[in-house]
Design a protein around this nucleic acid. Structure first.
Ligand SMILES: [Mn+2]
Ligand SMILES: [Mn+2]
Ligand SMILES: [Mn+2]
Ligand SMILES: [Mn+2]
Lengths: 249, 249
DNA sequence: CTTATATTTTAGTACATACTAACTTTTTGG
DNA sequence: CCAAAAAGTTAGTATGTACTAAAATATAAG
């Protein structure tokens, strides 16, 4: 039943992926957000969105934003599958550094055939997450879409397990990894300065301080085994904590 | 010293590779030949050649043909290196069929970074030939450029070792492999019918008949150990044997 | 030599993708 | 509710790459 969708360009694929990553349940992906994410002028994005709409891959509401149609979503998920399997393969079979594979995968994802991807996946034992903790969609397009909270959203006293981190900035990844922060790591928030101040946390048994800009790129799931420990002091600050919502970027 | 040549498109790279493969010592690559090889209209090729000339990658003599400049040749050789290492990797590490990798490599060669290629090469132990017997240029751009004779050019009685075969047509590759003809195989020409008739040859100890159209895609090096055996009957035919020249395709 | 054929280039067009500048619509803050 | 700011779109242009049809040049045949 899979229609032989007439070869999309790599560019178009990247747009679909970006929309997938930016639309948030009810909220469609904004043109400016897409433009920034893709490093392309907003005007150009407008144009491309119209083409994608014409192809039935996105639904655009003028001046309001865009969301994927079902076919568009399917394309995006396949691309994401390719990306994440490639990343996994490069790290585990070819010795790439985990902070360095994103860029390579960004290119290869458009050139790798489904056969290649399935062969890689098989060699790897059909992994379900990439090196950065991101879930890998199945060949049928199913994917774990749970959203996690970022470290920046946790309150002092909270314990958590790092589930996933953004792979887009190698420098940031290296910085975080150097502090022991990587998928699977257990952390506990010790203190949090107001006004977007630094976050003090324990990683393993090291105490670390993290800028909220960095913390926003690390998503965690609650971890009861660590949680109960520290004193649940009322958050002291002034700024009303806006729940820094799930896994953007 | 390597100027940061401003990212060529994959298309442009493929043109350069095609020119490399089609120019023959003195003879420049013809526009029509390029067009056929690339599956593109001759008029379009004319246009691209002008752009490549403007970039200093080819030298075109109007109405006469094109040849690579030194920089152009360097680009072509790097592309060929990527192509052949990818083919080798896919066959030996990912279980691809050797008659099936060409198409995949044709895409990946434009997306794979030098780092990826060198990592693959290392894992493979820096191979010097791809699965079809084609030599792999070094990272510095050195390559074995010997030309071999095709089976079609051999006289009855001649013994030879298969050095290399065209990888462009999977069906043909499967056909030939099914007859034991693959790089390294030892053969001997038993008879050759005139007027482009079939070629009778021994592969291992099997006797095979081969159409000249197929034989033209297999290149061999002389093998003295087999050569002396059969009776060197004078070629019987009428057609003056035009030396079917080296490794085209 | 001269013409017919083969090869190659030019002209004109199209599509994908990008840009900047100018304009329109929506959102926000007073 | 309204003006300013933010977000998004349109207009006009550019580049890469392709096409077909027509013209130019080179080569082969008589
Ligand atoms: Mn990409
Ligand atoms: Mn990743
Ligand atoms: Mn190619
Ligand atoms: Mn090959």
């Amino acid at each position: 039943m899979t229609k032989p969708r007439p070869e999309l360009t790599g560019q178009a694929e990247d747009y679909l992926k970006a929309i997938y990553e930016l639309e948030r349940g009810d909220a469609p992906a904004g043109t400016n957000a897409l433009a920034e994410r893709l490093g392309i002028a907003a005007a150009s994005v407008s144009g491309m969105l119209q083409r994608l709409a014409r192809l039935g891959l996105v639904k655009t509401e003028r001046y309001r934003g865009s969301r994927l149609t079902e076919p568009g979503r399917a394309v995006a998920l396949q691309l994401i599958r390719r990306h994440r399997i490639i990343e996994s393969y490069l790290v585990t079979r070819l010795g790439f550094a985990w902070d360095d594979v994103h860029h390579e995968a960004e290119q290869l994802e458009h050139a790798a055939s489904p056969e290649l991807i399935e062969r890689m996946a098989k060699v790897l034992g059909n992994p379900t997450a990439d090196p950065h903790g991101a879930p890998i969609p199945t060949a049928e397009g199913r994917v774990d879409e749970r959203r996690f909270e970022s470290i920046a959203a946790l309150e002092p006293g909270a314990g958590a397990r790092v589930a996933r981190m953004s792979d887009r900035d190698p420098k940031l990844l290296r910085y975080l990894a150097g502090r022991g922060i990587r998928p699977g790591a257990r952390i506990r928030i010790e203190a949090k300065e107001p006004f977007d101040g630094p976050i003090v946390l324990t990683v393993g048994r090291e105490r670390q301080t993290l800028a909220p800009g960095a913390a926003a790129n690390v998503w965690v799931e609650p971890d009861a085994s660590v949680s109960a420990a520290a004193p649940k002091s009322r958050a002291r600050g002034g700024t009303p904590k806006r729940r820094a919502s799930g896994n953007s970027r």
